[in-house]
Design a protein around this nucleic acid. Sequence first.
RNA 1: UGGCCCAUGGUGUAAUUGGCAACACAGCUGGUUUUGGUCCAGUCGUUCUAGGUUCGAGUCCUAGUGGGCCAACCA
Length: 561
Amino acid sequence: MSEAREALNFLEHIIEDDLENGYQKSQLRFRFPPEPNGYLHIGHASSICLNFGLGLKYGAPVNLRFDDTNPAKEETAYVEAIKKDVKWLGFSWDTERYASDYFQQLYDWAVQLIEGGKAYVDSQSSEEMAEQKGTPTEVGTNSPFRNRTVAENLALFSGMKKGDFEEGTHVLRAKIDMGAPNMLMRDPIMYRILNKAHHRTNTDWCIYPMYDWAHGESDYLEQVTHSLCTLEFLPHRELYDWFLDQIYEADKVRPKQREFARRNLSHTVVSKRKLLQLVENNVVNGWDDPRMPTISGLRRRGYTPESIVAFADTIGIAKRENLIDVSLLEFHVRDHLNKIAPRVMGVLNPLKLVITNYPEGKEEYVTAENNPGDSDAGFREVPFSRELYIEKEDFKEEANRKFFRLKLGGEVRLKNGYIIKAESCTKDTEGNIIEVQCTYDPKSKSGSGTEESLRKVKGTLHWVSISHAISAEVRLYDRLFTDESPDTHKDKDFMDFVNPDSLQVITAYVEPSLKNAKEQDRVQFQRMGYFCVDRDSTPDKLVFNKTVGLRDTWAKIAEKA
RNA sequence: UGGCCCAUGGUGUAAUUGGCAACACAGCUGGUUUUGGUCCAGUCGUUCUAGGUUCGAGUCCUAGUGGGCCAACCA
């Protein structure tokens, strides 16, 4: 059997090369390293799928490491939320680590650097240091403290650790090259004084390592082989390697940082800072608002983890800039929900329909298929009566041939029920249609096997029996931003593009089988879309979120006309 | 006035590493359908430009063009 060669992304090619050049497969190790300063979003999901996917592919462990080197912004609540999201996506980490686990080791290594003349304590203000840093086109100048003696540096650094100094008075810097073309190599800061309690180490420390000093060394301590991050860290790689050079021992695995392009989703923003802004300005109702591109928001919206993983697999990973259309994400959630979501009937925008020749007071049950694509899904009974609600958009007094719905004198089938014919309608004083009167063919009942029941009519409408229906709050969502790339405009702030109509709350009428629906239950309201039960739902009041609509060919036809 | 990264259909990614440019989505046509859904069949369309190396270039080289990143005691 010949097998087509599997398509690899560029990171997999790098790993395959490493495997050929001496790495043992058993040495492979990855990590997902979020900072616990916010909630994970769809971009992180992509990174999670990448790292954990690589782990699965190569049978390699993947650590979940919290990059918690800045106590000013980090909280335990975020740690818990992040763990929940990773688990929900279906991944398991090998060990749970924290950069803060390594504070002592990092400190000891820093002392070693000082002793080797590779680091010094600078006692200038940040403004002074920024000035000496130069610009991308101009070299920097050395700090007047650059040549402090080892003894002096050691004493000062130890004083910093003991809390002898105020914040901002001293920092520890690596002694590299103020003339380096790479700005990050111009004597980068390794430690700063921060009199803040850390969510894990509390007040044990008042000096904290910077990202660059902590990250690579953490990778090294965990013996991570491939440290994957986004492209904006590319210039950090030289520094990552320089720091590793200072402590690397030849018998250990030497981690390598490699960079990939961040995935950008259209009509949203994926930046913790900007998402936080949306939350703080009450543009949305919290991090898990169903309009948010956060994993918690997508979960509440009704997305399945499977659909998010499938999305991440489809878009792949590369180094070029990208803007992925959110409709691809929507495709994947439809694709999955189509397979698993039970079909039910719900009328979102009700119009009363009276069947004039149906006996008053009569009620009967019709049999409905739970999922036409899944023969194991079974059937249920739905109550039918003389007075029903249908969708307002499904009736017009007159319409052309393309309108496969109800019009005066026209026939249509009520899903799982009877064929009806619209006879007349009633309007209010403003001319709005408020009721439609129709007649039904008693012999046309679905599944009855009669000749009439087998008749083909062009349209099929969903409906609910008014006296049996349950009213429910339904939250409809539109794109959060009107622009496909709201945060890429130089002259405008992304907040200028917030869609004022991104949330619409309506009262809908749903079939009684939904009475005991539980939070997170996902259903398809036939012909309308996929919906899930929100956590605001109570036994007395059902609340649904619209996850995504069905593919809507009719909308395109209507648009053309 | 510097260094580095990137460029493949409308979108996102592939291309057996120099050998017939493919997959998914979107679009369009038709078929099936008691969801204008699903499913099925078909179809449209691509290597930024100019040189060079080569029997052969999306892939290698040079130049150009376009886009991005880099001057936080953030990560």
